[in-house]
Design a protein around this nucleic acid. Structure first.
Lengths: 218, 218
DNA sequence: CTCGGATTGTGACTTTGTCACTGTGATTGC
DNA sequence: GCAATCACAGTGACAAAGTCACAATCCGAG
């Protein structure tokens, strides 16, 4: 059994395993585009190493991150659009060097037809993504930016409670403008919740930040 | 062949047709809840008559419509959540009296395994919905409310170019506040684009409204 | 006709987004 | 080392959107 299989433990029947075992692996360097808005692709991709960021971009350059595809997950959107004959409404970009299994459409269809565990895996991913994006719609529509920012800081801080990214990058994550993030971070800093330096954010008062993140809507 | 089949012309192989033909039909009156946020369901539903509106609600009462399930389409979210073991992130409500085919999970799985046309139908719906919701994220994040409102008015006007709904209902559609809609409509009226009366909007200058709807982002 | 609820209007305010800048730290090439 | 350059961050002024509180209508039921 290949290493890859340990990443997809739920795909456990012979046909599903066969499909995974015979899939070719590809690699891509960090910061390369996996798919463009409006394009299409002919394979089902399973990430075995690294992270892919999926986001939409507006004409004026603003962006918002929709979700991330992690190790052991699949890059649904490509195949979805292929099967549904849609153009991509989003863009995919590697955040790290990645490796992925390439499952050709014929094998993908075979898996769906003959491997119930493969089918379950695919539907699970789909459901998860749809829920993620629906939740995002609510978040964007209803939550104040301080709440969304606080949440994001907590989730993406490393084990030392800091983040290495620019205000612009945070603005892209949350689909807002750089100035908005700068102002909000400054406010947090004045409240003593964190320390700012060029390209870095050091979280100090996790309790308080957590409280802001969990402010209920009215 | 039942009438239902004419609504699902792409499901054209024997097994797929069999599944549809033996499905029981249910009906629901207008304005009833099909599923709640946080609940789950055990059947795959195909709408044969009427319209179901899918939306999320914030704690403060604001709502936003995610998409509508029309005749000949499927109520993906229920099954998705069932298969992915997620709770619903949204609520479904009938907008009209509806009739739907109830396909039990066992038949749903059989269709996926044995009917390629059924499988294609399911994936098509999924892809379409995911794209719809992703597009919505961009719309909500990046487009001004006048543009979104103009678009909505054009799409939902009847053949006489009018709409029968309240400002509050429009606010729910677009995920914003009633006052915002009232003010924007008033502005449109002052510009001579439409006429307002209680619960009604009569569009006058379609060309101009269309121009606003297609304002590019900067 | 009157009452009450639903619908719409409005002013004052806060938050968010936009624009046009300025300041500042880091890096690179000489 | 030092200047030039560039990415990053700060800021003030304004526009757009959302919130809040309340007033003004309209309309149907009784």
């Amino acid at each position: 059994m290949k290493v890859a299989n340990t990443l997809f433990p739920t795909i456990n029947d012979p046909i599903g395993q066969d499909i995974i075992n015979k899939a070719k692996s590809v690699s891509l360097p960090a910061n390369s585009t996996v798919f463009y808005q409006g394009a299409s692709c002919e394979n089902y991709l399973l990430i075995t190493k690294g992270i892919v960021k999926v986001f939409t971009r507006a004409i004026n350059g603003r962006e918002i991150v929709l979700y991330r595809v992690l190790e052991g997950q699949s890059c649904t959107l490509t195949t979805t659009c292929l099967l549904a004959n849609n153009d991509y409404p989003a863009e995919g970009e590697t955040e790290t060097d990645i490796e992925a299994l390439v499952i050709p459409l014929s094998d993908f269809n075979r898996g769906l037809a003959e491997s119930s565990s493969f089918r379950a895996f695919v539907f699970n991913t789909y459901g998860k993504r749809l829920c993620d994006v629906i939740t995002l719609v609510g978040d964007v529509s209803f939550n104040r930016i301080d709440i969304r920012l606080a949440k994001h800081l907590l989730i993406h801080a490393n084990q030392h409670n800091n983040l290495s990214l620019t205000h612009q990058a945070l603005a892209f994550e949350l689909g807002t403008a750089r100035e908005v993030i700068s102002r909000q971070l400054k406010t947090f800093e004045k409240q003593g919740l964190l320390c700012l330096s060029r390209g870095k954010i050091q979280l100090n008062n996790l309790t308080e930040i957590n409280e802001i993140a969990n402010t209920p809507l009215i």
